[in-house]
Write a protein that binds this DNA or RNA. Structure first.
Lengths: 221, 221
DNA sequence: TGCCGGGGTAATCAATCGATTACCATTGGT
DNA sequence: ACCAATGGTAATCGATTGATTACCCCGGCA
């Protein structure tokens, strides 16, 4: 019996996949040699052992991306569970839990994101697969949550897609900044960012329940 | 007399820089050969003409990044001017103008961003340079604007850095999604996104003038 | 025990690529 | 007209790299 459900097998094939993904995330596809992958997988460099398991270097990347993007379904499910299990009593606590859960899951997928970033142009089908599995499904889930929560606190947003892009895009942005530049937005560590996000999101949720934001009348001093 | 101030010279050196940056943004540094750069610059492929102008392939990228990142100062100045020249009468119009100006300038720098994304790990000094010139300065400018505008409409945000990351991070996010995935957030084209951003930002600005958001009292139906 | 196949290694091939060198065509100054 | 510099080309070197082939070690099985 083969237990393919095991999260981390230690077969040579799996070590090759893991090593390849890690190295390609760092150095890019062309910047990673088969010899480096073999060495990182515990084989003799440039001895061709990789070709006992894959037909070509490109197939290693393809297999790795397929395996990991399929695992993303689990990530989305995990997030949905985390949100469902969050107590509803205090809106701010709920928002903070959601923000931290999402940022944590983003971090788990950072390697995959880096590969998609660097090689998306060269492997459009891999980018498309990643986009459909992660951003697209993630936004869809987020939008459901946003509408439901908005209704619980007054009414749903007038433009659910737009508001989802704003509210959850903020979290995506925080993660992308770190992935692209190896630094968060200037002067904003994670705690501070989460606080600000909770604050802003709570304000937005409140605003839908209080007045119609498309009302042209400005409310200032 | 050499007019180095001209924005687009047509010297061979400049054509090499432009071609290299465009190709590297697409294919990455290792994925771009000197022959391809020469060909795209109108020279004979693999004839070594590039080396009449640069000592090595790496120096081409270095020179290109230095030239373009220095030009970013001009972009930031342009944005500051655009914001200054925006009429203050109508907050929503002002916000829309700002959003569209920023998205447009982001697009102008997309090539540079793609290079920084793909090669930032391999050329940390180039990434640092880009980060300091664009995100860091951009956020600093944005924060000044946000505080000033907040004060005009009531009071400044309690956490300027955090709110800047939220408000302008939203715009950055929209651009990054398109750069990384070649698609905007699902179901949100630019007009819709700008509308949502204007709506959300106006709401946030208003909230600072109305009540202290750190007040723990929830305001719902 | 004898065999057989999966999986690892050594060695090598052919292609590609960064870099170098020698050469030449054009141009502007004297 | 001559010369020197600028900038482009042809040809080539040496290193790297993806891929291939021959070999072999070892464990399960009849």
């Amino acid at each position: 019996m083969t237990t393919t459900a095991s999260p981390v097998e230690n077969t040579t094939r799996q070590r090759i996949i893991d090593a390849a993904l890690r190295l390609i995330a760092e150095r890019g596809y062309r910047g990673t040699t088969v010899g480096q992958i073999e060495e990182a997988a515990g084989l003799t460099p440039r001895a061709g052992g990789l070709y006992k398991h894959f037909a070509s270097k490109r197939e290693v990347l393809a297999a790795a991306m397929v395996q990991r993007t399929e695992a993303i379904d689990q990530v989305v499910t995990t997030l949905r569970q985390a949100v469902r299990d969050t107590p509803v009593e205090d809106l701010r606590s709920e928002l903070e839990t959601i923000a931290r859960s999402m940022l944590r899951e983003f971090e788990n997928e950072r390697t995959l994101l880096r590969v998609a970033m660097k090689e998306g142009d060269q492997f459009p089908e891999l980018r498309r697969e990643f986009y459909d599995r992660f951003p697209r499904r993630g936004y869809a889930e987020a939008q459901r949550w946003l509408v439901a929560t908005g209704e619980r606190h007054g009414r749903a947003p007038a433009d659910p897609e737009g508001m989802t892009a704003i509210v959850f895009g903020g979290l995506v942005h925080y993660h992308l900044m770190q992935t692209v530049f190896d630094e968060p937005p200037p002067g904003v560590d994670e705690d501070r960012f989460v606080d600000a996000w909770v604050e802003a999101t709570a304000t937005l949720l409140r605003s839908w329940g209080v007045a119609n934001p498309s009302d042209p009348k400005e409310a200032t001093a």
